[in-house]
């Protein structure tokens, strides 16, 4: 089966990337619009924010799948022809890379841990594309700065480069304008 289209959209905070991603997706006829949310509520403000977003999307006819970690579980919830939006890479990476920090054993400090997770994620993305009609991936621009967290930033760079290489189209958002880079 032919793979579904993949689009990568990245931008700074409040650059309009999510709105653009949603617009792109809703322009495509699909039986369902699925929102893969990677955000994890760690405080009441975040909880409220997630609930607000869920409600907004419900009104817009979205099906929300909360999947902060282990994206392969979301595969079971995706049906043929779905239009899928994943928001976003940076939160997913933080969730996976620091998983286990409460026990003092974050993934980032274990050899091969993130490598294995990333291989699984690459496979999951391929499989999502096989089922869904389209996959739009949203991420953040955080690499034009001093390196503060080398492991995180290095992974993010590698992941972004892979996604861009795999995507049919790639956009950089700035102030609500989408610049097509691929």
């Amino acid at each position: 089966m032919a793979e579904g289209k993949m689009i990568f959209i990245s931008g700074g905070v409040r650059s309009g990337k999510s709105a653009y991603a949603e617009r792109r997706l809703l322009n495509i006829p699909a039986p369902r619009y699925v929102y893969l949310a990677s955000g994890q509520a760690r405080d009441p403000e975040m909880e409220e924010r997630i609930l607000r977003h869920q409600k907004d999307r419900q009104n817009g006819g979205w099906t929300t799948v909360e999947q902060p970690l282990q994206m392969e579980h979301a595969l079971l919830k995706i049906k043929a022809g779905d239009a899928v939006l994943w928001d976003c890479v940076t939160t997913w990476l933080a969730n996976e890379l620091y998983e286990g920090w409460q026990e003092g054993k974050p993934c980032t400090e274990e050899k091969g841990c993130m490598e294995a997770k990333w291989r699984k994620m690459q496979d999951t993305m391929h499989r999502i594309r096989e089922v869904a009609g389209i996959l739009v991936i949203v991420s953040n621009e955080v690499l034009d700065d001093f390196v503060r967290d080398e492991s995180y930033q290095k992974w993010l760079g590698e992941i972004h480069r892979w996604i861009v290489a795999e995507s049919d189209e790639a956009f950089e958002m700035e102030n609500g304008v989408a610049y097509k880079r691929k």
Partner: peptide, 12 residues
């Protein structure tokens, strides 16, 4: 002279 410019870990 050629400059190759971009953020960290972008593949420069």
């Amino acid at each position: 002279m050629h400059i190759v410019f971009g953020g960290a870990f972008n593949g420069k």
